[in-house]
Design a protein around this nucleic acid. Structure first.
Lengths: 352, 352
DNA sequence: TATTGGCAGTCAGGTGACCTGAGTGCTAAG
DNA sequence: CTTAGCACTCAGGTCACCTGACTGCCAATA
């Protein structure tokens, strides 16, 4: 077992290594921290930590470096999420407060978060899964072209074009018909969860005269497709340049890392698997990122910090940062948590 | 002056250097290309090329490398844009053909282009500048919340939320009023260029009863803001990982390059300055990218290829690729041109 | 038993000497 | 104008060497 002092040694190893980027040895530990024991004693503790695979030596005669497992223990037991400074909090409020729509909110969120952490920041669009229909529009755009617009209570707007030859969609009659259709759609579907609208859409044509059936069905199919296609979430990303800045933290090129990030599927899966309790911040470290498809091994030397935010309608999405395992967990976790909280407040009140 | 053979030498230097990534010397030139003269003669030609600053020697005893100026001459005079293979053409059609909306089109475009060129691909949203209003929606979303949706003939949809306390926007009366407002807005503004709608919006309230004036003005202001805020273009980007792959082509870190790319303003300015004739491809090489704001010197060692595409309504936007100056101009220019052409066709017919 | 000082051993990384080979510029001759 | 030849340059690889920062272990100590 590792003694209390041993854990304390682990902590300072992580902290010093993150700060200095150099393997830390027993001598520097006793010099920089008041342990009240000699370097030899620290060496004994370090031998135990190495036994437990919490630290490792890059080569025989060098100091020690935390392993993924070491970072894990550090994150779980040894670090306090230190609160942000008031200046930083204000920066969040002023910068995010200016956003005009959901796109803008998420774009600003990632830019802000990447600046606060000096890492790559990621944010997921609120999932359609548990979102509800707020409003549906059907608009004729010329003779044979119809646009459907789906607005959800998460503030998301998706449009879809469909082509219906011979629909005569720009006549007054069609306009009236669209009005009726719009009314019925909103009456039937308004407030329903997106996952549940399928059935109602299928029966839609029964409510209209048979000669309209084809058109109604085309529109219903378009809406259904719109919902299905958008079920797959999208990610917003910012701060990729920070990866290049910290390139020396990676053993090889940063190419596989960038590639894994652009392959958004991997991150979406990873976000999905990370359990997040309340407004906490979850961390996935190094090899823990594996198993999310080919390309995910590009994330072998990175850590992902994630938290959740809630858009109105209760739909939860993730946001977080990604960087080398050698990162300042304490500060970055605080930043992620603060931004997630603020985002929840913003989107909650904004769409209440 | 540089002789004809001298230019031919420049051409093979560029081609060989791009292919091999190594300075090319007189001996390898006579070995690999049938010039019918000796290495010494080539050396004389190279001395002239160096005199003209078209090539340079990294160090005394090594082969030569093209300068920015050398690439410029190569691009302007010595390269044929070789057509794409049928397979590649088909890839463009099938991949882009599946797109469902403008976001999707541009996202697919950049992913495709980055795959075709192995470089970073960029695409600009069609500018609002010359776009026209296709449709405007006004929707009540609860008691005090109103959403305006602006649809342009470029296929772009922008929504905006506004808060009007006490608007009672969810009453039947309000709904009717919104219908009237919607009708008037579309009648007055439909088909107008976005740049020209300002005046009409200002006079809008005069058409409604005075007790509605405040609300109408709020909505008009919202629409005006929506147009103004979106005048500034956005960029879609893909293939940043390719920069990491070609990292050895840059003298320093790729950090400043990535940073310049994320700072979209620089690229938007650069795109704006590049003159594009017809469906040609314009190239900006190395130092030519300077002068577009701080951070632009990050693009000192990159070249930007750009072409234009036309969305219906005549609004022109740019797309292109960015990579190290040491790139395969011939192939990449062909890819950019082909994608730009296809995009014009797609967006033209799709919104005709 | 836990801690300590001391000592021998290890090894990454820096330095300097050296060599090799690719490539050049120049000159004189064809 | 072209060519062959020659002397020169220099990047980059290799090798030997040294230094300094660590460690592991052991015997002494509190």
């Amino acid at each position: 077992m590792v003694s209390d002092r041993g854990l304390e040694v682990l902590r300072v190893i992580v902290q010093d290594y993150v700060a200095s980027r150099e393997p830390v040895g027993s001598k520097t530990i006793v010099e920089r921290h008041a342990f009240g024991v000699s370097a030899a004693t620290i060496r004994n503790d370090m031998a135990q930590l190495e036994e437990e695979e919490l630290i490792t030596a890059p080569h025989t005669s060098s100091g020690r470096v935390p392993t993924d497992k070491g970072y894990r223990v550090f994150v779980d037991q040894l670090t306090e999420v230190r609160p942000l400074t008031t200046v930083q909090r204000q920066a969040i409020e002023t910068f995010l407060g200016q956003a005009v729509d959901l796109d803008d909110v998420l774009s600003r969120t990632t830019r802000l978060l990447s600046q606060l952490t000096n890492q790559v920041a990621l944010a997921q669009y609120p999932s359609f899964g548990s979102a509800r229909v707020r409003h549906i529009e059907v608009v004729g755009l010329g003779a044979s072209r119809i646009m459907t617009v789906l607005i959800t209570d998460t503030g998301r707007v998706d449009q879809h074009l469909l082509e219906v030859p011979g629909a005569a969609a720009d006549t007054p009659a069609a306009s009236e018909f669209f009005g009726e259709l719009r009314g019925r759609l909103n009456a039937e579907l308004g407030g329903k969860a997106l996952a549940d609208v399928g059935d109602s859409l299928r029966d839609l044509a029964a409510n209209f005269s048979p000669d309209r059936a084809e058109l109604v069905n085309a529109i219903a199919a378009s809406l259904a497709e719109q919902i299905a296609a958008n079920r797959q979430d999208r990610l917003v990303m910012s701060g990729a340049a920070n990866l290049a800045r910290t390139a020396s933290d990676f053993s090889g090129s940063i190419y596989p890392v960038l590639e894994a990030i652009e392959e958004q599927v991997i991150l979406i899966k990873l976000f999905g698997e990370m359990e997040i309790d309340g407004d906490g911040v979850t961390v996935s470290i190094g090899h823990e990122n594996q198993g999310f498809g080919p390309g995910a091994q590009g994330l072998n030397e990175t850590s992902v910090l994630a938290s959740g935010y809630t858009a109105s309608g209760g739909s939860v999405a993730r946001l977080g940062v990604l960087g080398p395992t050698r990162m300042d967990y304490s500060t970055n976790m605080a930043a992620v948590r603060a931004v997630a909280r603020y985002l929840t407040r913003l989107l909650g009140e904004d769409n209440a």
